[in-house]
């Protein structure tokens, strides 16, 4: 959905930053209202999801099942508050619905489900999204469709063996229509990924599996967009963008905090967080 605002890279960044700020506010409010949820990984993925939904991906909020749409799989399903916010801001549903997150009868489940317009697959049990993406990419090949498949994975989730089964399959079938993005915030529930179960050297692992690898700052729109769009030019292999991010990005006391992996802000923290995001009266 490339909007008509690309007169310069600076202007593009400015517009996307405005959207990202709105998404961060939604994330905090959604999780606060729900009384549970995962702010840390939602905030670290905000620029990635914003760049995809508001610049890179071809999709149509008025026709979520459009068969030529680019596909997006949120393999790190617990970051769905960010995805729901992007879907709402894109126009898949009213932003008011965001406040129903995790409530009985809501279309916005605690982890992504197909109840939500714009979501194609249930995720939440980690490590499964890349396999789904491989299936979608093979489907495109059979039908000779040009849509692209994007999958966002957490770094902790790369400890799941299935991810590497899928990585092997994507390279084996030369699925150059897949772009995986790793939200490399270096924190998982029990602590630093390198202390819990070391992932490094991560880029070498992907390279060894036959992938094209780019490492970027995952909060910089130009870097995100350049890495993904340059990847499209590379044929014959799947692409992964390792996006270095800060868990809880944008809210001072959540940044780099393991505690806010899966905890909502309390009343006071909510006010502080919203103030930091430019909302004075909540």
């Amino acid at each position: 959905m490339k909007e008509n605002f690309v007169r310069s890279r600076e202007e593009r960044t400015k517009k996307l930053e405005e959207i990202a700020l709105k998404i961060r506010r939604h994330i905090i409010r959604e999780i606060y209202e729900a009384g549970s949820g995962h702010p840390g990984g939602s905030l670290s993925a905000t620029e990635i999801i914003t760049a995809l939904y508001f610049y890179i991906m071809r999709h149509n909020p008025h026709n979520p099942k459009w068969e030529d749409r680019d596909r997006f799989v949120l393999s790190k399903g617990h970051s769905c508050p960010a995805l729901y916010a992007a879907l709402a801001e894109s126009g898949y549903f009213d932003v008011k619905e965001l406040l129903t997150l995790r409530k009985l009868g809501s279309r916005l489940q605690g982890h992504p489900s197909i109840k939500t317009p714009g979501i194609d697959i249930c995720t939440g049990s980690l490590g499964q999204g890349l396999s789904i993406a491989v299936g979608m990419a093979l489907g495109a090949r059979i039908d000779r469709k040009l849509y692209r498949v994007f999958v966002l994975m957490g770094d902790g989730e790369l400890q799941c063996g299935e991810v590497w089964e899928a990585a092997m399959a994507a390279a084996n079938y030369r699925l150059d229509n897949i772009t995986a993005i790793v939200d490399r915030n270096r924190l998982q529930i029990d602590g630093n990924t390198e202390k819990i179960m070391s992932l490094e050297p991560l880029s070498f692992k992907f390279k060894a599996f036959g992938w094209h690898v780019t490492e970027i700052n995952g909060h910089n729109f130009n870097e995100i967009i350049d890495a993904i769009e340059n990847g499209f030019k590379i044929k014959g292999k799947p692409k992964v963008v390792i996006a270095h991010t800060v868990k809880g990005k944008g809210v001072s006391f959540m940044e780099g905090s393991v505690a806010f992996h899966g905890k909502p802000p309390n009343d006071e923290q909510f006010k502080i967080a919203m103030k930091e995001l430019g909302v004075e009266n909540v």
Binding site: G135, M136, A166
Partner: peptide, 16 residues
């Protein structure tokens, strides 16, 4: 790699 196979089957099914 059965886990991946099942996921791939699901992904293919989403494409009709």
């Amino acid at each position: 790699a059965e886990q991946n196979m099942v996921g791939v089957a699901a992904g293919l099914a989403t494409t009709g």
